[in-house]
Design a protein around this nucleic acid. Structure first.
Length: 572
RNA sequence: GGCGUGGUAGCUCAGUUGGUGAGAGCGCCGGAUUCAUAACCCGGAGGUCGGCGGUUCAAAUCCGCCCCACGCUACCA
């Protein structure tokens, strides 16, 4: 049996994520995880919150809370929202977990032993008023190039010139506004990625089946300019994993923590350890997913992320793994996504622009969002969310094509035969043709799902729904019933079995609706249709069912206009 | 500036290594139907495949140049 390790890029802790974040990582990862489980594979699907770094500290300060407390609360909030979207994580961990502390320190120790860490002494801006070092972007001042007075220390947003914080005229802290800044000398650890460049390059070259978006970004970083650069993996912060060499102190690194991008991917591993602890399993259970010397050899590991995360997953994290010299599982496939835009602009967490996950759930069931987002996933290029498109797609696909199919067949059966599958009749040409047609379409759907072609999978699934409507239309049981009730009974049985089949096939996309369909069909049989003819006879004559409430209420023009207005501005 | 990704019907997008008259869904128009959430089903109109030039018997598909959009450019994550 295939074993699938699946991770979604871990969302940052400082607030609720928007739909663009969701569609780029957690949602497609969930689609794949649910599909693989449905196919009978053993799946471990992990996600977590990414909790370290300056933005978390600042968000906590703004909320007037200790950072640990803030993160714990936000983790609970994000976990609840994930549940609302029916994201089926086996564990939703935290990068601040003790497991991640230990593993991060362990990896750093191994890398140091391998000679892949070097110490660099550098100058950084220190704010006396804030009592902290400031990352470049948290220093503001006047651009020496264009005179823009809110240029950031890394780049001027007005003229796009790249800057060094010391270039700024009248620099000030973006946090407090204080101008009491000074340049201080500080020591940091750098991961010698450059030493692993050839190894990484060859590894990327071997991944000819990866999305171009993934490999092109990786190659750019490998080959651009002077090639892959070493990367600082420590920071002068309080909140994070204390710098240690394994369980030993690291002289000269007192009071420093690892850089969030060093410890965040390691959380993928630590999260598995959190999972075993949380579920009372022995350590060997997570090691058989992550250690190739302990059973992970036959694991297929797939990562999901937005394109901004690709460099860290294709280069930095693999450098950590390879550099450790230990038999950790490397990723087998990286599925990356472009951005989802919102009504002509970008979704923006910092600017509060767009629809956020909690807001989305407050106006419509998760399945509406899941279906639209997945069927419009930004795979080949950035895509755009508009309320008109959302309304039209959801109404047509979910309400008209799928929901109405369930409605018409269940109601017709109830009115002519009662609430149980009617007896009589035998399959004829139309049914054989339907089976052949569906078999081809289901095999196509499986192919797309296996390849993680999200939009194509959605289109294939939709075509399967349409086939049911075509069948009903062509055999017309409402006509047959007048002259040949046995034949009509057989046609209705077919229609009701289609409802169960659709529930099974659609569950990865719309799990809540699928559960309702199975409930209405009064069955727990979710077996994947290897043999379509058999699957369409799973519910026998005499099997009781019920007519479900409207599966998908349509989005009205009034609602759409209301939401359009309500979400046009900036979230406060 | 450099790099990357896109620019195919009104909209959202498919189009492996160049090869039968350029496709799908939505929208629109028409027809059929009445079981159903004014739903479903059938048919139709609609495109000089961003522009120019080149290679070729043959290019949306390869090459060059240009235009446009978006992204990245390495200590925000």
């Amino acid at each position: 049996m295939t074993r699938h390790l699946i991770t979604s890029a871990i969302p940052y802790i400082n607030g609720i994520k928007h739909l663009g974040n969701l569609v780029g990582s957690q949602l497609p990862a969930d689609l794949f995880a649910r599909y693989q489980r449905a196919r009978g594979a053993e799946v471990l699907f992990l996600c977590a919150t990414d909790e370290h770094g300056t933005p978390a500290e600042l968000a906590a300060a703004k909320a007037g809370k200790p950072v640990a407390e803030y993160c714990a609360e936000m983790h609970a909030v994000q976990a609840e929202i994930a549940k609302g979207f029916a994201l089926s994580f086996d564990h939703f961990g935290r990068s601040s977990s003790p497991q991640n502390h230990r593993l991060t320190q362990h990896f750093a120790g191994r890398l140091a032993d391998a000679g892949l860490i070097r110490e660099v002494s550098e100058k950084q801006m220190y704010s006396n008023a804030d009592g902290r070092f400031l990352p470049d972007r948290y220093i503001e001042g006047t651009c020496p190039n264009c005179g823009y007075d809110r240029a950031r220390g890394d780049q001027c947003e007005n003229c796009t010139k790249q800057l060094d914080p010391t270039d700024l005229i009248n620099p000030r802290s973006a946090i407090s506004g204080s101008t009491d800044l000074e340049v201080r000398e500080t020591k940091h650890l750098y991961l010698r990625q450059s030493a692993l460049k050839d190894q990484l390059d060859a590894w990327i070259d071997s991944k000819s089946d990866w999305p171009v978006l993934t490999t092109s970004i990786a190659r750019k970083w490998l080959h651009d300019g002077d090639g892959l650069q070493d990367r600082g993996i420590t920071r002068d912060l309080d909140w994070g994993v204390p710098v240690k060499k394994g369980d030993q102190d690291w002289p000269g690194m007192e009071g420093k923590v690892f850089y969030v991008w060093f410890d965040a991917p390691i959380e993928y591993i630590a999260c598995a350890a959190e999972w075993t602890q949380a579920t009372g399993r022995p350590d060997a259970e997570w090691e058989r997913w992550w250690r190739t010397d302990k059973g992970a050899d036959d694991v297929r590991y797939t990562q999901f992320m937005g394109k901004d995360n690709v460099p860290f997953h294709t280069l930095s994290f693999p450098a950590t793994i390879l550099g450790s010299g230990e038999p950790w599982k490397l990723v087998d496939y990286i599925k990356s996504f472009n951005y989802l835009n919102y009504d002509g602009g970008q979704f923006s967490t910092s600017q509060g622009r767009g629809v956020f996950m909690d807001q989305a759930l407050s106006i419509l069931p998760a399945d509406y969002w899941r279906w639209w987002l997945l069927s419009h996933a930004p795979e080949s290029s950035d895509s755009e969310f508009t309320w008109e498109n959302f309304q039209a797609s959801v109404n047509k696909d979910l309400a008209d094509v799928l929901g109405n199919f369930v409605s018409r067949i269940t109601k017709f059966c109830r009115s002519k035969f009662g609430e149980a599958l009617p007896e009589g009749g035998a399959w004829g040409e139309a049914e054989e043709k339907l089976v052949a047609d569906l078999t081809a379409r289901i095999r196509e759907y499986e192919g797309f799902m296996d390849a993680i072609e999200v939009r194509k999978s959605a289109a294939a699934l939709r075509a399967i729904w349409v086939a049911g409507n075509e069948y009903l239309q062509s055999v017309a049981p409402w006509t047959t019933v007048k002259t040949d009730p046995d034949r009509a009974a057989m046609q209705v049985r077919m229609g009701l079995n289609l409802v169960r089949l659709y529930a099974v096939l659609s569950a990865p996309f719309i799990p809540q609706a699928a559960a309702r369909m199975l409930g209405a069909m009064n069955t727990l049989d979710t077996e994947w249709p290897g043999d379509v003819a058999a699957a369409l006879q799973a519910l026998p004559a005499g099997h009781a069912f019920s007519v479900p409430e409207v599966m998908f209420a349509k989005i009205t023009d009034e609602e759409r206009e209301d939401w359009q207005t309500r979400f046009a501005g900036i979230r406060t």
